[in-house]
Design a protein around this nucleic acid. Structure first.
Lengths: 206, 206
DNA sequence: GATTGGTTTAACCATATGGTTAATATAGTA
DNA sequence: TACTATATTAACCATATGGTTAAACCAATC
């Protein structure tokens, strides 16, 4: 029985992640996912029953990984300064290591936000210990204590996340406009983290 | 002869922009673009000869519009503080008015950056008066004069652009995580601009 | 009123694509 | 060995899709 179930299913999931990341949902070809996974196209439908469902599996996996990476930092009782140092470090490095994820996410973010919302709901249901509400309250309390200048949790998080994630999307554009080229990824990561931490602390800490 | 050439061609371009924005390149259907433009599918190939070329036309138009909006501000000899106030205001309002544009751009940004680079090159060639180099030099000189804390033009611009544009992409995600809902777009725009200007000035001005 | 040149249409084509089926292989179990 | 349940494959199918063609249309000009 099923000695290597996992291997095929996982191979498909991995190949699907790469394909969806590279071409988007509509651009991805079921056939080439199967080929990349080293199996027959029918295997894919055997395990996932449709392209759509395969995609959802990939998406919630991706979201789950990002989420797991961030969840820790949200639980610790950090000062705002510590948070502004740790978050970009963790987030930027994680994204640099897993470029597929922002590529997948960004497409849904723009073209099918309901998808993300749905996947997010699943994750939140699975991680019952994580309460976004608590995180919001923390930001609000930082503001009430006069520690930070941005009192709206939505804009606080938008500022933090924007600065950390957008460079991975916009780099080609900014490079094209500016004529500057990023040669070394590690150097870029370090510089980006440094710049983000500085503007966050200087800009939102009181 | 050609009494209303423009009307058909423009109708196609408009419909194509909406379709590409809503579904991405691979997801867009040539047929439904034509239908939305009120004409036959063959008209589309008559004017644009391929889906790919139609897309490129839409893309360089979109980039051109964004570019035109920003070009002005780059020419004026602004102080860093003025720049940090004006840029987000202009940019955020423009994006809010033209949500199709970021939607189109973001897909290429992630999946086909060469496309953007190519379109950008065209635009720069067309607008010979705009010299990105000059803009970079301006940022560097601000830094040399001790006016700003971020000396790298790439990261300076990444900070400015990230904060302004990303909210339009990430909103659904942040809303899903935070449970907060943006009800009023005008109020959101105003709040976002305010938050961005504040963090930019506090965070990068010396 | 015939010619001309861009514009528009209906019908058509080859192929790619998501999805199905029915048969077969494989391995653990009785 | 025979049985069962999952894993895997090759062949197939209906349809959607980008793209083509050839003919018709329409307005201006000669």
């Amino acid at each position: 029985m099923a000695r290597q179930v996992r291997s095929s299913k996982d191979a498909i999931l991995g190949a699907a992640r790469r394909e969806f990341a590279a071409r988007g949902f509509a651009g991805a070809r079921v056939e080439s996912i199967a080929r990349a996974a080293g199996c027959n196209k029918a295997m894919l439908f055997y395990y996932f029953s449709s392209k759509e469902k395969l995609y959802r599996a990939v998406l919630s996996r991706a979201l789950g990984e990002i989420f797991a990476e961030i969840a820790g930092i949200v639980h610790e009782q950090l000062t705002p300064a510590e948070f502004m140092e740790k978050f970009p470090e963790i987030y930027v490095r994680f994204l640099a290591r897993n470029l597929d994820l922002p590529r997948i996410l960004v497409f849904d973010l723009v073209h099918r936000p309901e998808n993300i919302a749905a996947a997010m709901t699943d994750i939140l249901r699975a991680n019952t210990d994580f309460r976004p509400q608590r995180f919001q309250d923390m930001i609000r309390s930082w503001h009430r204590q006069g520690l930070i200048s941005e009192g709206d949790p939505l804009h606080f998080m938008l500022n933090v996340v924007s600065l950390s994630i957008f460079s991975f999307l916009a780099r080609p554009l900014v490079e094209a406009i500016s004529g500057l080229k990023v040669q070394n990824d590690e150097a870029f990561c370090r510089a980006r983290i440094q710049s983000v931490v500085r503007i966050l602390k200087q800009g939102m800490l009181k």
